[in-house]
Design a protein around this nucleic acid. Structure first.
Lengths: 197, 197
DNA sequence: CAATAAAGTGAATCATGATTCACTTTATTG
DNA sequence: CAATAAAGTGAATCATGATTCACTTTATTG
């Protein structure tokens, strides 16, 4: 037994993995998934192309992990905003607002996560997380309907529609640097009216 | 001058082009753009791969033409539905209804036109036509706001949100064969409430 | 130091369709 | 039929990144 994976080595490896991931996220944040190539990534972390594969099984796995990690952060922020209010309308408004504000803070990332053409594996994750967003809104809407605060409706449908409305109406302003406050306020009103709040 | 392009030949060529296009549209209608390969298309029209290129400059041009042709048909149907009513609310309702009903009639095509991962050139057309849809709704909303039938809002923003809501909330039901009438009725209500009708 | 296993290298190869091209066939006219 | 130009063929090539792999270097232990 001449060689063993010592804690020090394992830690270093895990740190290296994190660094690669962080670097990959930056590539996407700046240039979208199109900018995330193994070559570019290897360059960024001063590593050979082949060695990246010791940390990630393949490109799909890497891309999906980048997508999930980035999206989880956004999803969490929206979830917290929603849970931070007790009033139904305020809850919805806070969720919409946080989603939109964060998108304006990092427009390329928002576009990459929402609408950039990506490999099918990433697109599947996109579907998954769109549903996750929808479930956040669905829960609030369902409560509202149950308590009579909101009119009768199919909460899952309204929630999906809200997610679509958010994504679609932000893309234009994000790309063309549209007027942030007007857009966000308009979106909030649209969504509140849409569910009958 | 031994050979000249006679009308007969030109007509045959133009007919052949239409046939190729029709065949390409069928491929997309059945299997999405992923199913549209030059090979498959050549097979379908009993033609060699190389010969396809005498009718279409390259794959992008072909795909884009297929996309535009298919989408124009949908757009026209929605435009006509909207123009068929004088009342603002009825106009919006008709537009939403026709869009959704047609999507349920051809779910794979709807998915291909709305959300399938496609080559960037086609994606650009997608953007273009999403804006075209938005303008249709925008016009109605702007009229409503001007006449006082609808509350104050940014028509372009509300219109984009409606397009997004339609696209997003249909994808699930289309894929899982959801309950058509409930979904369409729910969507109509959502959109009418959203603009304040 | 010797032995061992993982980390690291980067040029070569692969995968997947699109695209080309040297060649054949067909249509047209005098 | 001869000449001409377009229509048609399909195997070979290209393009673009991902992926592999034979090899080198580094870390660890007795």
């Amino acid at each position: 037994m001449a060689y063993r994976e010592t804690t020090k080595v394992l830690e270093k490896k895990s740190q290296m993995r994190s660094e690669i991931l962080r670097s990959a996220e930056t590539l996407v944040r700046v240039g979208g998934f199109k900018a995330l190539t193994i070559q570019a990534l290897a360059n960024d972390v001063n590593m050979s192309v082949g060695n990246i594969y010791r940390y990630f099984g393949n490109k799909d796995a890497l891309s999906v992990e980048v997508f999930r990690h980035s999206t989880e952060r956004e999803l969490l922020a929206v979830a917290q905003a929603i849970q931070g209010k007790t009033d139904i309308s305020q809850s919805l408004e806070a969720g919409v607002r946080v989603f939109a504000e964060r998108a304006f803070r990092a427009p390329v990332l928002a576009w990459a996560l929402i609408a950039e053409p990506v490999e099918p594996a990433v697109d599947e994750s996109r579907l998954f997380y769109r549903e996750a967003y929808a479930r956040l809104f669905e829960k609030v809407i369902a409560e509202g309907v149950a308590s009579g605060t909101l009119p009768q409706q199919i909460p899952a449908l309204s929630a999906a529609a809200i997610v679509g409305a958010l994504a679609e109406s932000l893309l234009g302003p994000l790309e063309h640097n549209g007027p942030e406050q007007e857009v966000i306020d308009g979106l909030v009103l649209f969504c509140l009216r849409a569910v009958g709040a």
